[in-house]
């Protein structure tokens, strides 16, 4: 059953996470600590209670066709089908990058057609695979850069929640991890300056903003600067992609969560020689792709995060 902690509203704001195997991540913002719920019924219950719901999908890698999933376009369509079948329409969707595999125009076109088909308001950040066109990111910015700053960062508000979209995949340094850069950090400090500490914050970027596994580059060199700026807020939810698996942690009022890919899984840190696409038996694949739902409730209740796989 869904855990409730209305009795301890000030302690933590909860993000609950339900897991659909293979599709995307559904997030519910309702108070503080992220929590994984395994059953769709629980997800529905969380959704019913919440003021609004938003979705996260990630790492579509449109154009990927290797052994780990020769049909990445189809699994994306499957995930989108699950979104379209939701009984209650989410308020918005975020895509945490690697929309395409190689930044090709036809891949971006497929993204627009398939993801756009939901009719949802979709907010994107780029992954490193979205910036390898000849113009080093021009193709992405031409399509998604309107109203953004710098390499594509921006912020917006929805039902009292402040969403911050960060770009940590440009100007990567030799030997380094993800990178935000001084200009983006200065913009963020300015963006947050007048926000009351009670404002619920959802920050999203492609590469994890905290170090998941440095040996594989799974972290952001100046991510700690972001966390420092967000520390005074009562409810902070950090959503990322890039690593094609769910990793979650809670630190004080901050909840960190990475989403599954809709294209292919990657190995658990340190369990393989390299982080490349992981080929699993065909019947296992739908259990390792997914989407995330977040339910946001009014007041001090926690955000409830629900991951769902394509197998559910």
């Amino acid at each position: 059953m869904q855990e409730k902690n209305e009795t301890e509203p000030s302690r933590r704001h909860v993000l609950e996470c339900m897991i659909w195997a293979g599709t995307g991540v559904l997030w519910t913002v309702s108070g503080g600590i992220p929590k994984s719920l395994g059953l769709l019924g629980e997800a529905d219950a969380a959704q019913a209670q919440s003021a609004f719901t938003f979705l996260q999908i990630s790492d579509s890698h449109i154009g990927f066709n290797k052994a780990a999933n020769p049909h990445a376009l189809d699994t994306l369509k499957e995930a989108i089908g699950k979104i379209e079948a939701l009984p209650a329409k989410p308020a918005l969707m975020i895509h945490t990058g690697d929309i395409t595999h190689l930044s090709r125009a036809d891949q971006f076109d497929d993204a627009a057609q398939i993801i756009g088909g939901t009719g949802l308001d979709v907010h994107y950040v780029p992954g490193e695979h979205d910036l390898v066109d000849e113009g080093n990111g021009k193709a992405y910015l031409d399509r998604y850069g309107k109203g953004t700053k710098g390499a594509g960062w921006y912020a917006f508000d929805q039902n009292g929640v402040h969403f911050i979209a960060l770009v940590n995949v440009v100007n990567l340094k030799a030997g380094g991890l993800g990178n935000l850069g001084a200009e983006q950090l200065a913009w963020l400090a300015d963006d947050l300056r007048d926000k009351p500490a009670s404002t619920p914050i959802v920050v999203f970027a492609h590469i994890p903003l905290w170090t998941v596994y440095a040996d594989w580059g799974w972290g952001t060199d100046d991510g700690a600067e972001v966390l420092k700026l967000l520390r005074r807020f009562g409810s902070v939810t950090v959503l990322n992609g890039h690593i094609h698996q769910i990793i979650q942690k809670i630190e004080g009022n901050m909840t960190f969560h990475t989403a599954r890919s809709t294209a292919f899984p990657q190995p658990v840190p340190g369990t393989a020689p390299a982080p490349g696409p992981m080929t699993v038996p065909a019947d296992r694949l739908p259990h390792m792709l997914g989407l995330t739902r977040v339910d946001v409730s009014i007041g001090s209740k926690p955000l409830a995060i629900t991951d769902t796989t394509l197998a559910d």
């Binding site: 490193e128 695979h129 390898v132 340094k173 030799a174 030997g175 380094g176 991890l177």
Partner: peptide, 12 residues
């Protein structure tokens, strides 16, 4: 001549 991967900069 030192080089790295522009997508995965830990590769050098």
């Amino acid at each position: 001549f030192a080089y790295y991967c522009g997508l995965h900069p830990h590769m050098q």
